[in-house]
């Protein structure tokens, strides 16, 4: 008898996936009935949010502004701290291998550390408020910015460096006139991209007390004041959308 191996492999794959799903559902005590009840309740929550509480418009908006401010300052701190690391962790530009390796590992470790946990630590040591949020974002974003930026440094054109060396420029001048202008626009673009992500993070950080619109959400969720939640979500949706588009536009222009 001839065995259809492709079909066999497919069946095995499917069986494994199905097994994992069933195991998960068993473990979490989830059955189809619970799901069937869960999905309508999502609709129900959304219904409760309407109409959004207009009295909370200005408070929510100013809290959202605070989230933006947290993201702006946090991203800037991260960009400044990540700048030297971007070069230290870039291979092929004359940094010793051991330094590059160490810097890359540090960046990886920072990247896997969840923002929210950092937020809790900073709230514990700095007290509740936006500054804790700024620090959480500022430290956490170093990981990703450093990684992306070092990749940019690794791909620069060496031609201008050779040209300036040939004309007798010193190292500082080579850096400022041959390396810096090549990487700067892309560094800015990665910082802007990270800013978009950080704005979302800044809306969440309030849930652990680190300022921004999350604080209003936390309070209104505690007391199930759904129309206030609706208002806050509405403002998040509108503001994040506007900033996403603006940021994407600027990124396109500068690179």
């Amino acid at each position: 008898m001839k065995i259809n191996w492709q079909l066999f492999r497919r069946i095995v794959n499917l069986a494994v996936i199905l097994g994992v799903i069933i195991w998960s559902m068993e473990g979490m005590n989830i059955n189809l009935e619970r799901i069937a009840r869960g999905i309508p309740s999502i609709g129900n929550i959304i219904k409760l949010m309407f109409p959004p509480d207009m009295d909370f418009f200005s408070r929510s908006l100013s809290a959202m502004m605070e989230s933006i401010q947290i993201a702006v300052i946090g991203t800037t701190i991260a960009a400044i701290l990540a700048f030297p690391i971007s070069f230290l962790s870039a291979a092929k530009i004359g940094v010793p291998f051991s330094v590059v390796f160490l810097a890359k590992q540090i960046l990886n470790a920072i990247r896997t550390f969840p923002e929210l946990i950092l937020g809790i630590f900073f709230v514990a040591s700095y007290g509740p408020g936006p500054l804790a949020g700024v620090m959480a974002i500022g430290i956490n974003s170093i990981g990703m910015l450093g990684k992306l930026n070092s990749e940019i440094v690794e791909t620069i054109d060496r031609g201008p460096i050779e040209a300036l060396e040939a004309s007798g420029s010193n190292r500082a001048e080579v850096f400022l006139y041959a390396i810096f202008p090549q990487v700067l626009p892309q560094f800015l673009a990665t910082a802007l991209y990270r800013f978009e992500l950080n704005l979302r993070a800044a809306t969440v950080l309030g849930l652990v007390g680190a300022g921004g619109i999350g604080v209003i959400l936390l309070q209104s969720l505690q007391f199930r004041r759904w129309p206030v939640v609706g208002m806050s979500l509405l403002i998040i949706i509108v503001v994040v959308t506007i900033i996403d588009y603006t940021s994407a536009y600027i990124r396109k222009r500068i690179t």
Binding site: D157, G159, P160, E162, A163, E165, A166, S167, G168, Y177, A178, P181, Q182, L184, P185
Partner: peptide, 17 residues
């Protein structure tokens, strides 16, 4: 000494941006 010597390259070696 290098300051006194100009160099021109096959790939121009300009900073494109």
């Amino acid at each position: 000494m290098r300051a006194q010597i100009g160099m021109i390259f096959q790939n121009f070696n300009l900073v494109n941006r």
